[in-house]
Simulated scan of single mutants.
Amino acid sequence: MTETFAALLLAHVSADFLLQSNWMAGAKQARHPGALLLHGIIVLATATLLIAPRDATAMAPLLLLTGAHLLIDLAKTLAPGKSLGAFLADQAAHLASLVAIAWVFPMLAPSGWLGGLPLAAPVMVLLAGAVISVQAGGYAIGLLVQPFGRSFRAEGLPRGGKLIGQLERGLIYFLILVGQPSAVGFLIAAKSVLRFDASRRRQKAAEYVIIGTLASFGWAVICAYAVLGLLQAYPPLGFLALDP
């Protein structure tokens, strides 16, 4: 079951956060049939690639998973507007569907072409955690601070704040995984020094930065420790904080 879940998790985050464009996400929210069909094809393709089935019988669970994914996406369109709560509920529903498929079809991944590779599953978990921390975290934090950003005009490089957030979450994720959580404090201090002069002159900007920074750091910390906990069910990789 754990191998199947790892493959399906990486497939899901790849389809939702790496291979889904802004146009596709917006068109899905508007229930555009072409966007839903394209997204469904991507979901099925990523799951098939990472499960790597040896025969066609494994396609039935993957088609079932794809159908559940699209139904969840359609249900999300009923939510009024975009909000962090709706995003988290949507992802929780997707996670539940992954667990259900892995529970009912535990040998889906072990019977595939990658089933003989003992480290394939933990590496998939690591990669999925990185995507959730960096990419999904950016979307979640954006939804959280979106209402506050309307109260002042943002300054700086185009997409600069987004890139900074991705880099900081990636660094935090890595530092915790290799057993250096204390280094996160130095990262917080460095960002505070760099932002101090610009923020102290504008209270709204300072509060906006503080909210975004704390949420971004917290998201990355939670992702890292969740991955470390999940990896206890897999063979050790030899370089992580909780490896024997």
Results as ranks from 00 to 15, higher is better:
Gly26Met: 00
Leu144Ser: 05
Leu84Ser: 09
Val193Asn: 08
Ser83Ala: 06
Ala45Gly: 04
His69Trp: 11
Ala6Leu: 14
Arg195Ile: 12
Ile222Tyr: 05
Leu167Gly: 02
Gln180Met: 13
Ala15Cys: 13
Leu214Arg: 11
Ile41Tyr: 01
Leu242Met: 01
Leu38Thr: 01
Ile222Trp: 06
Gln166Ala: 14
Ala92Asn: 09
Ala6Ile: 15
Phe186Ala: 14
Leu228Phe: 01
Tyr139Phe: 10
Ala130Met: 14
Ser97Glu: 02
Ser216Leu: 13
Lys76Arg: 15
Ile132Asn: 06
Ile72Phe: 06
Val13His: 05
Leu88Pro: 03
Met59Val: 13
Leu63Arg: 01
Pro236Gln: 09
His12Thr: 13
Lys28Trp: 00
Ala233Cys: 01
Ala109Asn: 04
Leu187Arg: 10
Val13Met: 04
Gly112Lys: 10
Lys28Cys: 02
Leu88Cys: 13
Ile172Pro: 09
Tyr173Phe: 15
Ile51His: 01
Phe105Cys: 13
Asp243Gly: 03
Val125Arg: 08
Ile141Ser: 07
Ala96Gln: 06
Ser111Lys: 09
Ala220Tyr: 05
Ile132Ala: 15
Leu157Asp: 00
Phe196Glu: 04
Leu78Asp: 13
Tyr234His: 07
Val125Thr: 11
Leu8Ile: 06
Ser97Lys: 00
Leu144Gln: 03
Pro181Asn: 07
Leu163Ser: 02
Gly212Thr: 15
Glu155Tyr: 02
His12Arg: 15
Gln29His: 10
Ala102Arg: 04
His39Asn: 04
Ala109Ser: 14
Gly212Ala: 04
Glu168Thr: 07
Phe196Gln: 09
Pro236Ile: 08
Gly238Arg: 06
Thr213Asn: 14
Gly138Ser: 10
